[in-house]
Design a protein around this nucleic acid. Structure first.
Lengths: 203, 203
DNA sequence: GTCTATAGTTCGATAGAC
DNA sequence: GTCTATCGAACTATAGAC
């Protein structure tokens, strides 16, 4: 029950390197490629050291997920203050690297249940933040009746994520057209911030 | 080079059982849970038998992917002949089991490169079929200029897939609203097939 | 068609040396 | 803080018996 095992601190440079290597592995080869041995090899250290900083492999993955979501949350806050929050959310969600990592975690959730609860908890929280920003744009007139902000939020993130997922697999057909449609709709919903010609002289 | 190894025929009942078990494993525990041992155990046979029907584990996965896509293609053809192809595509893409398996394969593609090429090839083919059906609804007026059929096709499938992916992880916030928006838009795009009240008497 | 047996890998996790 | 050494488990793939 009580073992002699020791563990390292959370504010360690090596620990950070191990998390970086884990992210790289997930992106390059998928979550199933993550093992203490392979992570250690990337950093040039030994597998035992991974277990010094992370009790189990699950702990390593959860730690990476938390670090990733904290970074995502900061980006979200910045997007919230953008003059065109819908566009900001769209561009944030369409970021290939960041979103690819999120997708990998969502797939991992099916294999490692410890990840699953972590993801659901964060996602609902972030979604609330996003919806708040979207609501500021849509107002609460008839537009908001047909297009509730939380629904629009879900749709924007959903489309962006699927496009990233498809591109990762080498599917590109119709993507340019789909992006054009989304951007057209975003311009219509944010008329105040669409690019404009200078006002014509009064006649 | 030339080994004594033997292989079983493709039209074998056991082979079908092994593919079924593989699909079940992928759905229940993710692609990383698929191994010859676990697949064999589900069916109540030995790992060696899996290698009798499938040379490698990659071959097993590719075979399952092909079988799955063939079934999906048949559904697609049926949807094409629906009076409301947009809705049919939406409902087909929102099918949780079928789509969950597709998502699992897309994640797997990052880990097993043999799967990746297979997926891209099928997806582009299916997308063309879908776009053809969508084009019949949208016509080629101004609507089709702003909303090219292939783009609409991508968007419908993208939203559906992301919603399934989120629900698998336990994220539900905003889904009802998002679905309502999609269905509202589908009704608008397919006015001929929207549910109608009986015509009012001429006044 | 299905099995046993087995060689060779990779993995997670731990104790204890340095 | 990092390493060596190690146990036990799970995995792929193959040959050959039944």
């Amino acid at each position: 029950m009580n073992s002699t095992r020791r563990f390292g601190p959370e504010n360690s440079a090596t620990r950070t390197l191990l998390l970086d290597a884990t992210a790289q592995l997930m992106l390059d080869e998928g979550y199933a490629a993550v093992s203490t041995r392979r992570v250690a090899k990337i950093v040039g250290l030994t597998p035992a050291l991974v277990h010094y900083y992370f009790r189990t492999t699950d702990d390593l993955l959860v730690a990476l997920y938390r670090r990733t979501t904290e970074q995502n949350l900061e980006r979200l806050k910045a997007a919230q203050n953008s003059p065109a929050p819908l566009t900001a959310l769209w561009e944030l969600s369409a970021d290939a690297v960041r979103t690819s990592l999120t997708i990998e975690f969502m797939a991992l959730a099916n294999h490692r249940k410890a990840i699953k609860v972590e993801i659901a908890r964060y996602a609902e929280f972030a979604r609330g933040m996003q919806a708040h920003a979207v609501a500021q744009v849509l107002g609460d007139g008839m537009l908001a009746t047909d297009f509730p902000p939380i629904g629009v939020t879900v749709l924007i993130a959903a489309v962006a994520r699927s496009l990233v997922m498809e591109e990762n697999v080498g599917i590109h057909g119709g993507h340019a057209e789909a992006r054009a449609i989304v951007e057209l709709l975003l311009r219509r919903a944010q008329p105040d911030h669409a690019p404009k010609l200078p006002p014509a002289p009064a006649s």
